[in-house]
Amino acid sequence: MRLDGSDRPGTQDRNPGGADGEESPIPSASAAAAGPVRVEVRGLSKTFGSVRAVTDLGFTVEPGSVTGFLGPNGAGKTTTLRMILGLERPDAGTALFGGVPYASLPDPLRTVGAVLETAFHPARSGRDHLRVYARAAGISIGRADEVLLQVGLGEAGRRRAGTYSLGMRQRLALATALLGDPSVLVLDEPANGLDPEGIQWLRGFLRHLAHEQGRTVLVSSHLLAEVEQTADRVVIVGAGRLVREGSIDGLRAGGAQTVLVRSPEADRLAELLRAGGASVTAEDGTLTVSGRSAPEIGHAAFSGGIELHELRPHSSGLEEIYFQLTAGSEQFAAHDPATVASPLEASR
């Protein structure tokens, strides 16, 4: 599967000074034709009747990184993205792409690619769907076949979109977003409907677009695990307001450092650690230890002759923030396959 979009015709001459680093493994892989674009959202507000969907929301999305747009279902993520893209009218506030609102972009598809709901005419083939928008945006028709290959829909492109699986629809939506070789990608819950393999592929693809090609990637999700594994930065929203914005590492460091320990002799180890001055909570044979580093705990266990099955340092900052947010929210989809093997699940 080709991830790089390396044979985009005309990219080289359109982009002599792009942000592709010299260390890029694929020589022709370059940033989008239009160069790096920062997205700035300021004071966005929107009310539906008496419901305040979004309130004074502001954040920045930087080029060259994947920014996770995280919040529980109903937090106003989709409304925010649709306002940023000029589909819904905000009551107040602005969203600028390199200083320009979406509606004023001279060539919107070449600046911003968006994956929102997967919307296709069921009787139209994926290829024809792409050709429609290529034609409308003045992009060469051949580009439709290129992006189909890029997202792994080469053959299926000729079939009617109505026959596609949910995963294939997501891929076609992504192909539509890539048509204009945009500097910015905005994706709303793109992992929905993808199988685990597809999710893995998508993560790699988004990181590649951001890190190797210098594009600006904003991807929304209600799953912390999904964002943690893809994003460099995160914007957390709850009830339409900004909760936190920053790098994943920075937010992680903000919380308490604990160590998770599993042992068949958990009780004895807990006693030993408590005696040493550590604070320990025990649950189902798993200890959460604070006040001691992993090497210190390992050494204590070794000295005491206690068998260890797991010893894992753990920063809980991001999870604490997100748990507070989602506490009591039934919609929090803990059963989504994407959460399997996530640190979030393991920490319970």
């Binding site: 893209l85 000029g86 589909l87 979406y102 509606a103 972009l105 919107p108 598809l109 911003v112 968006a114 929102l116 709901e117 919307a119 296709f120 005419h121 069921p122 928008y133 409308a136 945006a137 539509t176």
Partner: peptide, 18 residues
């Protein structure tokens, strides 16, 4: 109306925001 029925109004107006 097919734009609204099949929700293609979204990509259509993303392509042509005016």
């Amino acid at each position: 109306t097919q734009e609204y029925r099949h929700r293609t109004a979204t990509p259509t107006f993303l392509t042509t925001p005016l």
